[in-house]
């Protein structure tokens, strides 16, 4: 399968955050989806979530019970909800992450690429790390831990910082993206030197 030319790849990489912004009202940020799931798993929400109307009704009832009906006789001004997007649900994060895999599967199926089993489709990887059977799991788990740790520490990854933050000239994203590439370049040259 011949990969797309750089300019077509650039257009595609720009379209995804734009479409995401239009249909979901927020910036594309993949590592944030992992964080949302992890946090949900680490501290499950206590009790059912309330809508704003339910919350107002509950506060009203509690006020009436404590101070009498007179205290709530005058209607409180209605607070306009802010335009901030609703909090992401765990379901949509799981669906989003699964859909990334589905997109990859679709691409491979249409190109007729055969699965590579429990290894990566790579010539350089076995050349650099050797062919011992334990090498792939160890290198990938260690690499994965660094990815998970680093993206959470830097508050974003290639999508949130690299694409969406840099294009909006956000200072944290500019520094983080320089660091992503510096870390990647340094380690890749180290691997070649060893």
């Amino acid at each position: 399968m011949t990969p797309w030319a750089w300019w077509a790849s650039g257009v595609a990489l720009a379209l995804v955050p734009l479409v995401n912004w239009v249909v979901l009202g927020r910036m594309l940020a993949v590592s944030g989806r992992y964080t949302a799931l992890v946090d949900r798993f680490r501290s499950p929400p206590q009790g059912p979530e309330m809508s704003q109307a339910e919350l107002i009704a509950a506060v009203r009832a509690a006020t009436a019970a404590e101070f009498g009906e007179a205290a709530v006789a005058t209607e409180a001004p209605v607070v306009q909800p802010s335009s901030a997007p609703a909090p992401r649900t765990s379901l949509s994060s799981i669906v989003f992450l699964a859909s990334l895999a589905l997109g990859g599967a679709l691409s491979a199926a249409l190109a007729g690429t055969a699965p590579s089993g429990l290894s990566l489709r790579s010539e350089a990887f076995p050349r650099i790390f050797g062919e011992a059977h334990w090498v792939t799991p160890v290198v990938l788990v260690v690499g994965g831990v660094l990815v998970g740790f680093g993206t959470r520490m830097a508050s974003g990854c290639t999508s949130g910082h690299g694409l969406c933050g840099v294009s909006r000239a956000q200072p944290g994203s500019l520094l983080a993206t320089c660091a992503f590439f510096a870390g990647g370049v340094a380690l890749s040259f180290l691997l070649e030197a060893l």
């Binding site: 994965g144 660094l146 990815v147 740790f149 680093g150 993206t151 990854c157 320089c178 510096a182 990647g184």
Partner: peptide, 18 residues
């Protein structure tokens, strides 16, 4: 620091989160 750690992990695993 987080950016550097992620970059190293990206080069090792060949993968960013997506």
């Amino acid at each position: 620091a987080g950016g550097l750690v992620f970059g190293a992990g990206w080069a090792l695993s060949g993968a960013c989160p997506s």
